[in-house]
Simulated scan of single mutants.
Amino acid sequence: MRGFGHAGPSPWTDLDRPPLDADALRRDILVPGGLWSALDVVEETGSTNSDLAARARDGAPEGAVLIAEAQSAGRGRLERNWTAPPRSGLFLSLLLRPSGVPVERFGWLPILVGVAAASAIERIAEVEVALKWPNDLQVSVDGAERKIGGILTELSGGAVVAGLGVNVTLREDELPVPAAASLALAGAEVTDRGTLLRAVLRTFGELYGEWTAAAGDPHASGLLPAYAARCSTLGRAVRVQLPGDRELTGEAVAIDPDGRLVVRTPDGARQSVAAGDVVHVRPEGSGAPAAS
């Protein structure tokens, strides 16, 4: 993990992607009585989740935020790599110790991060952001749903480390896969990473406070209806790739109290899915662009 004191290429070589101002972020985010207790920005690391998980095992307090300008071993769900050019997005992890919340409700945390990130980014960037179950952030580019971000949560030392990655200024030729996108490609009005980051952290802090005050109850905290309102998967024909090379097809009809996706199969049965890759299936004859 490298800080900003070493000799090397200047972070100002790409003027469209200036470095984050860590001191300014601390002044704005680390406020008395707030959730956030520490904020660090590093130039490059393997994975902010791995680094913060190590701090959690060493007993670091709740509210630590670790941000990287670049990650060489960023990870998404199912151990997929997450790569992007330096300073082209938001790459951060949050250390959470949800006091008074039963462990069985910790599974709502990636959904909480998604709701906070989507609502904050949409408000600041003026781009509609949807959530594909379970934790992908999506925008529309030329009428097609494309992914701009994802969330990965891990347990470590009794804490939860929540990682968030969002593509902000990636250009078309920099995208890792055709189904990816960035806020810039979606026509965002604001792509300043510091402004976006402040909004995401403040929004998450507010929603997290409501969720913990309700002991993690997704109904009482308002999290479940907030997620359902943004979930692009609900009401869609889906194909779910399940563990063990199994496949489930049907209509996504609900999110259950445990955050699982409820799929109604062609025979009318309902099955709750806790983990799996979801493909939004284009209805035959719709003429609509296919979505992943």
Rank of each mutant, 00 (worst) to 15 (best):
I29A: 03
E44I: 12
D14T: 08
S50R: 09
P18S: 10
A64N: 09
G46F: 06
D51Y: 11
N49Q: 12
D21V: 08
P18N: 08
A24M: 10
P61A: 13
L35E: 00
A56G: 11
T48M: 06
A68M: 07
R55E: 15
V31T: 11
L35A: 01
A60H: 09
S37G: 05
L52T: 06
A38H: 13
D40V: 14
T48N: 09
L52P: 00
G46C: 07
G34V: 06
A38C: 07
S47T: 07
S50I: 07
G34R: 07
G34A: 14
L25F: 09
G63A: 11
D16Y: 10
R57L: 13
R27A: 12
I29Y: 02
P32H: 03
D51N: 06
W36D: 00
S47M: 06
L35Q: 00
T13F: 11
L35C: 02
P61W: 09
L15Q: 13
V42S: 00
G63L: 03
R55W: 15
P19F: 02
E62G: 14
V31I: 14
D28A: 13
I29R: 02
D21G: 01
R57A: 14
L20F: 04
P61K: 10
A64T: 12
A56E: 06
A53Q: 08
A22E: 14
R55H: 15
R26Q: 13
L15I: 12
L35T: 00
L66K: 11
S50L: 13
I67F: 06
D23Y: 04
A24T: 09
G34F: 06
P61F: 12
E44N: 10
E62A: 15
I67G: 00
A53F: 04
L20I: 05
L52Q: 00
R57W: 14
R57M: 12
L39A: 00
W36E: 05
S37H: 11
G59P: 04
E69Y: 12
G46V: 08
A24C: 08
S37Q: 14
L35V: 05
L52D: 01
V42D: 04
R27P: 00
T48W: 03
L52Y: 04
A60L: 09
V42F: 06
P32Q: 00
R55C: 14
V31Y: 08
V65N: 03
P32F: 06
N49T: 09
W36V: 02
P32R: 00
P18V: 11
A70Q: 15
G46A: 10
L30F: 03
R17Y: 05
D21S: 09
V65T: 08
A24P: 04
V41S: 04
G34L: 05
G33A: 13
E44H: 01
E43K: 05
L25T: 04
A24H: 12
I29H: 03
A54D: 14
I67A: 01
A54H: 13
D16S: 15
W36Y: 12
L30W: 04
P18T: 10
P19Y: 02
E43C: 07
A38F: 01
S37R: 13
G46K: 04
L35M: 05
T48I: 10
G46W: 04
L52K: 05
S47P: 01
D23W: 02
L66H: 13
V65E: 05
G33M: 13
V41I: 10
S50D: 15
V31S: 12
E43Q: 12
